[in-house]
């Protein structure tokens, strides 16, 4: 039978929603499902993990060096624990993308990146070429399946469970060559892009950091998260963590509204899973209209106040 180990993602006190999404993928894969929590103080996080339906056991390991998630520090322990499993899953967030290939290499296997669908317990679908092609990938019996889960493809597992929690000690050697210095978060109180039901995005068409205020204002009216194109991030209108697309965040809100975004393929990759895509652009030929469910040709600076007045 499959034994699936999920590597939890957390911020030191709270379990990330991405872990619940990994659980859904693990349930679909089939087998027993365990979650590994590595933290400076793992108790609270382990309890949150144990509450997820479908989880059979939570393994928690405390160590002061786990106070910041560093791949080089975490990977040896994960590989040691993971050696007893048929599958080791992590989220396809920047955390998982940094960490999981390091784990895979220690286990001597290639990693399956960005699982979208499970076709069998060792065969999956994943996107390549910025989502322009979907491939079938299968993993031979003798190999551990090490994979990241594409977050936009999976719903979070529900809560209410009470799985057993077991504590262990670290066994692997910990390197001293990598040190955390600091983390600057700029997003403020806006809803998290990856879980927001509505996302309002702005592109180069906004023209300045100052002008972006109208996007924030509309977003706060709608309780929406705020995203941006790469051009808007590069121009310094907004911080990098707002970038949506192939090299930014892949999101799946119910409603996505793009203002002043042309619709480059790398941007579209990030929003293909949205329920409804709305595009406002003053250029009727902009490629974003090819993927939009509802399009409006117009100047965003006049359209936004009109939308606000109409809601």
């Amino acid at each position: 039978m499959n034994k699936i180990l999920i590597i939890s993602e957390h911020n030191g006190s709270e379990l990330s929603n991405s872990t619940a999404k990994c659980v859904s993928c693990a349930i679909e894969t089939g087998g027993s499902v365990h979650i590994l929590v590595l933290a400076a103080d793992a108790a609270d996080i382990a309890a949150q993990a144990a509450a997820l339906n479908g989880v059979d056991e939570v393994i928690s390991i405390n160590h002061p060096n786990y106070s910041h998630a560093m791949a080089a520090t975490l990977a040896p322990e994960i590989a040691a624990v993971g050696a007893d499993y048929s599958h080791v899953y992590g989220p396809s967030s920047t955390y998982g993308r940094d960490l999981m290939p390091r784990v895979a290499a220690l286990l001597g296997v290639n990693q399956v990146a960005d699982i979208m669908t499970v076709k069998g317990s060792r065969s999956f679908q994943r996107p390549v070429y910025a989502g322009n092609a979907i491939i079938d990938v299968s993993v031979a019996e003798e190999m551990t399946v090490v994979a990241t889960i594409r977050l936009a493809s999976w719903a979070a597992a529900s809560g209410g469970n009470n799985a057993t929690i077991s504590s262990r000690e670290t066994t692997a050697e910990m390197p001293t060559h990598s040190r955390f210095i600091d983390l600057k978060t700029e997003g403020g109180d806006l809803p998290d892009l990856q879980s927001a039901k509505r996302v309002i995005s702005g592109g180069r068409g906004l023209g300045s950091e100052e002008n972006f205020k109208i996007i924030y204002a509309l977003a706060s009216k709608l309780g929406a998260g705020v995203g941006a194109s790469r051009a808007a991030v590069d121009a310094g209108y907004v911080p990098n963590d707002m970038q949506v697309g192939q090299t930014g965040k892949i999101i799946s809100p119910d409603l996505y509204m793009a203002f002043g975004i042309s619709g480059a393929i790398q941007h579209i990759t990030g929003i293909k899973d949205a329920g409804t895509i709305v595009a406002i652009n003053k250029d009727a030929e902009a490629p974003i209209f090819e993927v939009a469910d509802i399009g409006l040709v117009g100047d965003l600076f006049t359209v936004i106040p009109e939308i606000e007045a109409a809601i």
Binding site: G108, V109, N110, V112, P127, V128, G131, N132, A133, I134, I135, D136, V137, S138, V139, A140, M143, L255, K272, T276, I277, V278, I280, F289, V291, A292, D293, I294, G295, L296, V297, G298, V303, E306, I307, A309, A310, I311
Partner: peptide
């Protein structure tokens, strides 16, 4: 320890959308 890749498919295509001609029409549609 190679992964076996055996089939490429185009991504699921989205249904063709509609165009509206004013902010009011957009809000009404939403």
């Amino acid at each position: 320890n190679k992964l076996t890749i055996d089939h490429y498919a185009p991504p699921a295509s989205r249904e063709k959308g509609i165009m509206v001609d004013s902010a009011e029409a957009l809000v009404a549609e939403l």
